[in-house]
């Protein structure tokens, strides 16, 4: 009897079927929670998903690497979904043309501020140089954060994790902070959040407004490019 139970637990711990089902079901419950709570900031499906699935993973003693591996079928669609961000951009094209120069300048300023402030604040609080280099690319989307961290000599997988935290912070707190900062133009709001919270911020804004979501996705791509360009120069000055 107990051997059977252990066998079942072992199966659950590595089964893509169970782990993908868990992820999708918890996410779906997160969506219902968001809608029922009238879009409460903390009821973002990505946050509910990470916290609840994370708790189950810890409770069942699932190996985190095995979970990530088993759910690759879900993560795989991040690629096509990124390509799909062209569609809201296409629909908002008439709004984009008028603001191209302000957008490009703002994204470049953002890349410099993000990298510099992350390194300096971490240094002031006692982080060593390795951790400062690891934190520097956190405003870019996770695959870019990994690549940039590698060239900088940081801990690449930790950089990806920090980027995901920055994204989730944006999904939860971004819209409120932007309203508090008196940012009202939906194009400005999209670009601002996309520059610091990449795809996860975009996922949130797309649910709120297509204009904000479209500009957020664009800013995510441009921030990846801008950060790649300014990082070598900033690294020479900072480290």
């Amino acid at each position: 009897m107990s051997a059977g139970w252990d066998g079942a637990l072992d199966w659950l711990r590595t089964s893509p079927l169970f782990l993908v089902t868990l992820t999708v079901v918890v996410y779906a419950l997160g969506c219902r929670l968001r809608d029922r709570s009238g879009g409460h900031p903390l009821a973002q499906p990505v946050l509910v998903g990470v916290v609840v699935v994370g708790a189950v993973v810890v409770a069942l003693d699932v190996d985190v690497a095995a979970y990530v591996d088993a759910t690759q079928v879900v993560s795989f669609f991040l690629g096509p979904a990124t390509v799909a961000l062209a569609v809201p951009l296409h629909r908002q094209w008439h709004r984009l043309r008028a603001v191209v120069v302000p957008l490009l300048v703002a994204v470049l300023v953002g890349a410099v501020v993000s990298v510099t402030s992350a390194s300096l604040v971490a240094r002031a609080l006692g982080a060593d140089e390795l951790l400062q280099r690891t934190l520097a690319p956190k405003a870019t989307t996770a695959p870019v954060a990994i690549a940039l961290s590698e060239t900088l000599g940081g801990i690449a997988p930790l950089s990806a994790a920090l980027a995901i935290v920055a994204g989730t912070l944006g999904a939860v707190a971004g819209p409120h902070l932007m309203t508090w900062l008196r940012l009202r133009d939906p194009r400005v709001r999209g670009v601002a959040l996309g520059s610091v919270s990449h795809g996860i911020g975009t996922a949130r804004l797309l649910h709120d407004s297509e204009v904000e979501g479209a500009f957020c996705g664009l800013a995510m791509g441009l921030t990846a490019l801008a950060t790649s360009l300014v990082l070598p120069v900033l690294a020479a000055l900072l480290f």
């Binding site: 604040v121 934190l135 920090l162």
Partner: peptide, 27 residues
């Protein structure tokens, strides 16, 4: 946790404000 967490949150807010205010002023 403190230097990484505070660095991340402060820098995230600073980046958001810098991009938002720059673009808003230029527009």
């Amino acid at each position: 946790v403190l230097p990484l967490g505070a660095g991340l949150v402060v820098s995230w807010g600073a980046g958001l404000a810098a991009v938002g205010w720059t673009m808003q002023a230029l527009v």
